[in-house]
Design a protein around this nucleic acid. Sequence first.
RNA 1: GGAACGGUGGCAGAGUGGACAAUCGCAUCCGCCUUGAAAGCGGAAGGCUCAAAAGGCCCGGGGGUUCGAAUCCCUCCCGUUCCGCCA
Length: 430
Amino acid sequence: MIDIRQLRKDPQAVKDLMARRNKPDLVDQLDRAERLDIRLRDITAERDDIRRQVNELSKQVATLRRSGDDKAAESVMTESRALGDREDALAEEFAQASETLRQALLMIPNLPHPEAVLGGGDHDNPVRKGPINMPAEFADHQRVPHWETGEQLGILDNERAVKISGAMFTMQRGAGATLARALCQFALDMNADAFEEVRPPSLVTTATLTATGQLPKFADDAYSIERDDLWCIPTAESSLTSIHAGEVLNEAELPKRYMAHTSCYRREAGSAGRDTRGMLRAHEFDKVEILAVTTPEQAEETLNDLLVRVERAINALGLPYRIIEICTGDMGQSHHRSYDVEVYSPGADTWLEVSSVSWFSDYQARRADIRFKRQGQKGTEIAHTLNASALAVPRVWAAILENFRQADGSVVVPAALHPYMRGITVIKGN
RNA sequence: GGAACGGUGGCAGAGUGGACAAUCGCAUCCGCCUUGAAAGCGGAAGGCUCAAAAGGCCCGGGGGUUCGAAUCCCUCCCGUUCCGCCA
């Protein structure tokens, strides 16, 4: 959520920042929230005044009762009862108005960073670095889509995955399954120097999925288990962010850094018919996520660190990659500033997004109520959260199959993965 | 799933209709003492809301009874233990 106090204090500044997202409707939403907030404060003031009177009268009753003056007490009680009726009416109006405002605020996206590049959509995302590891040209044997290679080598069996679970599910087998797992272990080991490994729950509550911004707006994208009021996580970000939900942390313990390997579940409701072959888009996939909870001052440096870490892993695999910045018009709802790391797929002749490195400012932390206390200062402050996919398995798996395919149809496994491959250095057909 | 007992500030733990935002302890902060620290002594300090003061709100969530609820009632959630079931 955005900070309602900021909107109250300087509405124009907030609207100007929001306008950078290039969606006029968003400014209207801010106007509406502003009006609701004013109304709510009026109700609050009146209700609090009545409460004050009732509290005062109640004390009088107690005093009168103690002194034995029951008659006077009765009369005060009558007066107080009348105020109580009025308070009930105001309380109801308050509850309604605050719920309306809360719902409105939950739908409003984060304010972009003032230096985030302006743009209208993904076509405006500038390349910030790269391409790196890009050969002058690709050989014909590299121009084979990974799903063909995967089938030829017997390591990708999507046909049976569909039999088991339906369209858009995948299944890796043999060395393919080993490769998928190796990628996860590799990514975890790359970040173990600074991140605590966590194995969080994959099914989470509505509150948890609301904290990171998936709900209520993007409910259609997530799998829900209605009978138990749970949701399948679309990313470990959801679980990891809520580790400290409702907590007050000490400034000294920040940044908190976590990493997790989990399966991720996405309905891909808006993508029906797209990327239906291979591993590029699936309802279930594995990913290693790295996440940090920081002070506002630590956030920018942490963002850079996350980006460096993602880049280091991709680079260590020897894949061609580039880094793009996400412009204001293409940023996700919770994002304050973000970068994508893309890997080149010679088989499909396209760049694949393999990681999104994101700074959420206090947007998610406010929803999750993650606060911290500064040493020697009164009060608390909302923390910042950031995260990145340290490695998303399917697209990296696909890129390896294409980039490292040999003329004989085999695939050379990057050296960085050898420790995890049980001795397999080249994936050959059966 | 059944039963019993619980849920109170950063932690621990009293309080069972009114003087309770809530005893005491630990941890925290500030003084004194000390070369410095610890110990000891004295003091300060919960969170949220409002520009702030006043005020209001907060004892797991929600609802109710009452002039007045941490305290009584209803309901939901969570925890512990036992039983059942199960990997």
